[in-house]
Amino acid sequence: MKNTLATTKSYSFKKFMNSNNTVGHIFAAPFIFGFICFSLIPILTSFYYSFTDYSLGSKEAVFVGIRNFAKLLTDEVFVKSLVVTLKYVFISVPLKLAFALFVAFLLTRKSRLVTVYRSLYYVPSLVGGSIAVALVWKQLFARKGLFNAVLTDMGLGTINWFGDETLALYPLILMSVWQFGSSMIIFAAGLKEIPVSYYEAAKIDGANGFQTFFKITLPCLSPIILYNLVMQTISAFMAFTQAFVITKGGPNNGTMMYALYVYNQAFKYNDMGYACAMSWVMLVVMSIITLVIFKTSKMWVFSEAGD
């Protein structure tokens, strides 16, 4: 009698341990712990600050209701930063992904040189947001820089890249595309995961290179493409360093990325409350865009696991 109880108990414990809910939470425990301890409070705090008049110097947050949000509507620089950021995201992300996929695909050929080549293309990403590289980039687009030297040689005259508010964003976009290494590496890993048997089957069926690429490579890679799309979109929204180091947001706020404006408000103009309000508005914008990506992804992402 006792024995069976014990076994039932241990059986039910085992059952409990193996139930989806338990397993799920056990494996997710590191994240849940970190989220509750280190992320949740800062996130909620920033939400609270967005309804206050709070500067880092004074330390006292005075509740002001929705005043910060109302102020956003009339802030010309905020509206401009929103437009600039969206433009940056919509141009740089597709370019970067297409480029990363192209290079990753190009470099899956069977060749000893591939490792060398991939390193060559990856190095720019390693130097990341360093000041040194930002300086080089600034130099390339300077009035007497490499780009203008080439343009002059072609007889096209020079372009004042950083003097024109409509042009100044493009060097920054180009720099972001140039640092496509992490996306490329992830694509490369994804390409490697595609079972060889698929390609062999396609070959037997007489498919050519293009067909193989569109019928096998792309669908198999689609979860990775989705991943890179979502992550690069989010990080493009957060882009800060390049604008901060190279243009400081100018000329005429033509490169005032929203993260830079948040920084200026929080740290330069000492209006943390306003910076938080701005961040939350952008969080909503970002969430909507991410949601749209997820909803549409159901149409083009091919999933092995379903769910």
Partner: peptide, 17 residues
């Protein structure tokens, strides 16, 4: 929650953290 942690700029999270 995981995606949300990526969507607020570090500048506003920094001091509370």
């Amino acid at each position: 929650c995981m995606l949300a942690t990526m969507m607020l700029p570090g500048q506003v999270i920094m001091i509370p953290s």
